[in-house]
Nucleic acid binder design. Structure first.
Lengths: 330, 330
DNA sequence: TCTGTATGTGTTTACGTAAACACAAGTCAA
DNA sequence: TTGACTTGTGTTTACGTAAACACATACAGA
């Protein structure tokens, strides 16, 4: 309504105190008598004054903001990481500002540059692979950063996640132990999803070293979904008849199960299925799908805590591990 | 690394121009020769300078930020709205700052107060029901706001969504037309989810006016999931044997379908199922579930655009409508 | 040649807050 | 009664940027 928003001076005038006293009341610092605090609070409420953190930030060099960049909001994995981050920050009165990179390193660098213009306390990135420009930017500006989801490689400073390679290796071992030799791999958006690529690499290595083989590989350009998994499974079953299928994602695996259900294929007798992530919706499916449980929410929480911890602790790798869930589909 | 971060003055000194020229280059305004622009850009890159929007914001009263509050990040519906918002803002160089209310009005008011301290261009809220404190806060500060997902009621200023009541009514009509008379309702977290409550209200009204009845109602306190839907469906089928079940959510409906699949119940002969939202994963299920498609992403996009449009246009209701998807389960 | 306009750059100042410092009044033990 | 400490409040100043204004230079058209 009013053209110029009210300031601490307005509140101070109304409450009959100095601007500095209002500042102290707003931040809850210093010694303030209950009488003055109450006067200031009611004055602020009447005027409709809201603390201005922009001005505060410029005065203190420090503002309660954390920048978060995820590849997409369309994958539940990242929204769960976001949930963890949000929960951890909430307790500390810190807000996340976020950006989406669309799995594109150039885009990511642009988004980070923009986010840094808000002078956040820290930066949370997804994965360990970034453009040189981004790495240099982080180094030059000296922002604290934490990279989430992946620990196979060198973080800029700190990373929290799990070994994608080990997860792939473990699943390969599991399938081999069960006796499957002719194995197919189904993934989505793989060209950009380097974490899935790492899993596949380790998976394939373990499989071939054991004398078994990856007889087919379907990598779709579109985003992950049950529908895609169902379609690709139909294709692979028709052309390659694998004994087992490893999916880059539970969505895809669930789609595969749906294909089997709808076409009278017995799982795992006719084909075994294994997913990745351990999304909770799997529990409601007719058969429990074998998958790898990743601690996504915990990764988000840990990343936020690490970022805000007193001592920077550079070069820290936090591996929260994964858990192989032996379901009924292998 | 350096204790004090570089400023425009540092860049200006390095480039041999004035601070104001650097400012113009950073913002791309005014007349700047290519030679000077290049000098400034390289100087900034070498020093590692990043534009400081906090200082800019305090100088201009205007900063490219939009505050977004959602009830939860655990429901795909809201992350899809977020996707739409993020996409619409991206093109305009504006960032979302967000908060989670956990379906609690008091919490929501607190979060909004905090978000307003960043002096955003506008505020995006979920639903039309808010605490008085929040309404007053928005009124007093004069922030532009848009409420999303619901159009049944009075928005503070503007709302974008669809009529929850009409969605409930339409589904009731559909089930009645198909001849179902004994109908059960299954929901989650309903006490706080007022939009689901509105759908139920209109649904129940239409059902009872037609002489049919809601013979059972299961409303769980926990969050929506397929597993919950499966469990509640088992309960309802055992105790009430309804002809049709209306779920507050596709997750729950899919869980219901899983229960039927796993227990040899024919759908819709033994029981009909209807969900809500039209989530994409339904397409991969063995049977296409009847549901109501809500334009979630479009709601997010429209809300963001409306918020940033030149003229405030108060009291605007934008009803993007819903679409009843006639599946194979009714 | 003169005038007006487009182009390009600099100087001064204000934005709203918080740190640093100053100071006054009250409390309490020696 | 003194001095030290706790409690409570005010004054001055700096933070980094952008608006407003001022001032050049180049060039076209009369």
């Amino acid at each position: 309504m009013t053209q110029t928003q009210p300031t601490m001076h307005d509140v101070a005038a109304k409450a009959g105190v100095s601007q500095m006293t209002v500042s102290r009341v707003m931040r809850g610092t210093g010694y303030i008598s209950d009488r003055v605090r109450a006067k200031v609070m009611t004055a602020a409420a009447e005027i409709g004054y809201v603390h201005n953190r922009l001005a505060g930030g410029i005065a203190t060099y420090d503002n309660p903001l954390v920048a978060v960049v995820v590849p997409t909001l369309g994958n539940r994995v990242f929204t769960e990481v976001l949930e963890g981050i949000s929960a951890a920050l909430d307790g500390q009165g810190i807000r996340p500002v976020f950006g989406v990179s669309d799995y594109d390193p150039e885009n990511e660098a642009r988004v980070v540059l923009d986010l840094l213009s808000w002078r956040p306390r820290g930066l949370i990135l997804s994965g360990l692979e970034h453009s040189d420009a981004l790495r240099q930017l982080v180094a030059k500006t000296g922002v604290r950063s934490v990279e989430v989801m992946d620990t196979d490689g060198d973080p800029i400073q700190t990373c929290v996640g799990f070994s994608q390679a080990r997860a792939g290796h473990d699943m390969a071992r599991h399938l081999l132990d069960k006796g499957y030799r002719r194995i197919a791999y189904i993934a989505s958006q793989n060209s950009q999803d380097l974490r899935a690529a790492k899993r596949l690499h380790a998976f394939a290595e373990t499989v071939t070293q054991a004398g078994a083989q990856i007889i087919a590989q379907r990598i779709a350009a579109e985003g992950s979904s049950m529908a895609l998994g169902r379609r690709l499974t139909a294709e692979v079953m028709a052309s390659d008849a694998p004994q087992a299928i490893y999916y880059s994602n539970d969505d895809l695996a669930a789609g595969g199960l749906m294909h089997c259900l709808a076409n009278g294929l017995r799982v795992p007798q006719d084909v075994a299925l294994a997913g990745f992530n351990g999304l909770s919706f799997l529990q409601a499916l007719p058969q429990q799908i074998t998958t790898t449980l990743s601690p996504r929410r915990q990764i988000g929480e840990t990343a936020a805590q690490l970022l805000l911890s007193a001592e920077p602790a550079p070069d820290t790798h936090v591996d929260l591990g994964t858990q192989l869930v032996r379901g009924e589909t292998t």
